[in-house]
Design a protein around this nucleic acid. Structure first.
Lengths: 328, 328
DNA sequence: ATCTTTTTTGGAACCGGTTCCGAATAAAGT
DNA sequence: ACTTTATTCGGAACCGGTTCCAAAAAAGAT
């Protein structure tokens, strides 16, 4: 490994002169040429650890993600990655495999690595999270969950679900099942449910029942089989697209035709929802664009610029084959 | 930020004593207690840059991946991540968004960061790749593509496709379309095709035609529409599950029933292939287990242990609803 | 109690880069 | 030609940890 001392010796100058050359300091044209020649011949590049040790900072942004095999996470990371590259920051991805303990641990690990900022894609934000995030003195951006103590970028779960509720009413569905998830996930478990109910509850001649499943499609299959047997809804509104896939499978297993016998909606706008038959009506969140925005925001925070405390990403209702219009 | 010098001062000992305490050197019980107390009170942890600068190595394994939104990549990374965590190595994920230039660049960047080893999930291995991998003097493991100069962990594309070909024959399909991808991808574009053809070519009364598409489902939809119109196969064997999803959509758009009018197979064993209707017959590769194995292997290489030059991961034919048996 | 062996400790050098500042040199001004 | 200003350069200290080795202390043997 070639060091700055080697380069200095080979170019016949001092280490500090090479350093000045590398960092835009005062160096004569002749000396520049001498150093350049040696740098090119050797392929020298500075030792990152030495630089960071001295500078006490890095150009690294850490992200903490709950899982690697989720569409929302992947797309968000792609957006973050693209934008950070443009801004000449390096991205570190820490996968916590949905362990809250690991999330806390990774917060401290990233701080130790002197990341310039942290983007936390959170499923939930506990007191321990908050304590850790305060202790480490690093700019933090939450993505996907809101919290009044930290800057947040969230998908407008409430408003999106409300819009979907309006669409379901406009399609004249009156016997509605809502298949949600645990309240511990504020965004998916609470806000989407509340938003949807705000649109459909208390409508005359409209019955809506809440059911709960996990995030796994296999559990959603079983739950939907129950719902079909016990409640016979004309539509099932699912809190995620993966749950909707499970509901679709259960409909087939029950001998029902979608959307004729049972309509189904999802949430997220995963690509596969347009590839299958029937294509699934869903709410599309622009995860990649959200990732782009998150990257820009965290860099602004690193540079001590002001950003909004809370930002909402866009959504779009994708009206597709899986919902029909009822005649009543 | 508390440094080792602060700890030493507070405990009334020398820096080198604190360092020995931290690294299992010779320290008396009394001195251990003094240091421990101060370390706990301050929450001190060593500066990673200083450690790495001195040690000239890290406990980081870098992975270079072509994309973040692929099932195979996600599962492999999850497997790598789990295993590395157990082995107390940190994982860095570098996403190259399918740019060969970025792959080369990231090889050098990771070397600069003194990663202990690199796992390269490659789509193809060019001369530039080989040059870079040789220059950086870091243990390398290729995953998903074979190359005789570097240790490789590959999915047995040839044998798996051969087995699938045998299954297709056993289901008595005689008018077969194979929908493949570019030959530049040796594993998916060459080996899978060759393996399948080795099973079905030259069979009496069996006609098999090769067609080509990109990895994108949308392109596969269009290509499949053409194939259905021009060749009317009884089965389409697709080089990936995403292509199979496209083929399934095209069958629906053509008014065909699967598997009655047209059978479809995929490759990879993505979860969604069992969620949709009809469930797709496919070859399942155990990506996560492959990731586990890759992590163990790279760590062995880092420790100068011998490993096999080439290792094959397992596969399994998942016989599902999308292929029926012909009566001929 | 004395001698030998083992354990413990601290000082200093080192890892590879950055930065300050005085000295030297060059350029500009009178 | 002399003075003032600007540019360039190199030496040394520093960033926070590790490690070597001589000296001191402790433990074991006679």
């Amino acid at each position: 490994m070639v060091t700055i001392a080697d380069i200095a010796k080979m170019a016949g100058v001092a280490k500090s002169t090479v350093s000045r050359y590398l960092n835009g300091g005062s160096v004569s044209e002749e000396t520049i040429r001498k150093i350049e020649k040696v740098v090119q011949e050797t392929g020298y590049s500075p030792n990152k650890f030495a630089q960071s040790l001295k500078a006490k900072k890095t150009n690294i942004i850490g992200t903490i993600v709950p899982r690697l095999d989720s569409y929302a996470t992947s797309q968000t990371l792609i957006g973050i990655d693209e934008q950070l590259r443009d801004l000449e920051y390096q991205l570190i991805i820490s996968n916590t495999s949905q362990s809250l303990e690991r999330e806390i641990e990774n917060i401290y690990i990233l701080a130790q690595q002197k990341v310039a900022g942290i983007i936390l894609l959170a499923t939930m934000v506990t007191e321990k999270h908050i304590k850790a995030l305060h202790e480490i003195k690093v700019p933090i951006l939450l993505v996907g969950q809101e919290n009044e103590e930290f800057h947040s970028l969230i998908h407008n779960d409430y408003q999106a679900a409300h819009s979907l509720g309006e669409y379901v009413l406009a399609q004249r569905h009156t016997r509605i099942a809502y298949l949600g998830v645990t309240k511990e996930d504020i965004a998916v478990g609470v806000k989407r449910r509340e938003g949807f109910m705000s649109a459909v509850a208390d409508k005359v001649d409209t019955e809506v029942k809440y059911f709960e499943t996990s995030f796994k499609s296999e559990d959603a299959i079983h739950k939907t089989l129950e719902i079909i047997e016990q409640y016979k809804p004309s539509i099932i509104v699912c809190a995620t697209d993966n749950i909707a896939l499970g509901a679709l499978k259960a409909a087939y297993l029950s001998g029902l035709q979608v959307p004729k016998d049972l309509s189904i909606t999802g949430f997220g706008g995963y690509e596969v929802t347009d590839l299958i038959h029937p294509s699934i009506t869903t709410v599309k969140f622009f995860y990649k664009e959200a990732g782009n925005f998150a990257a820009k925001s965290i860099v602004k925070m690193v540079n001590k610029e002001e950003i909004d405390q809370m930002t909402f990403s866009k959504y779009e209702i994708l009206k597709r084959e899986s919902v029909d219009k009822k005649n009543n």
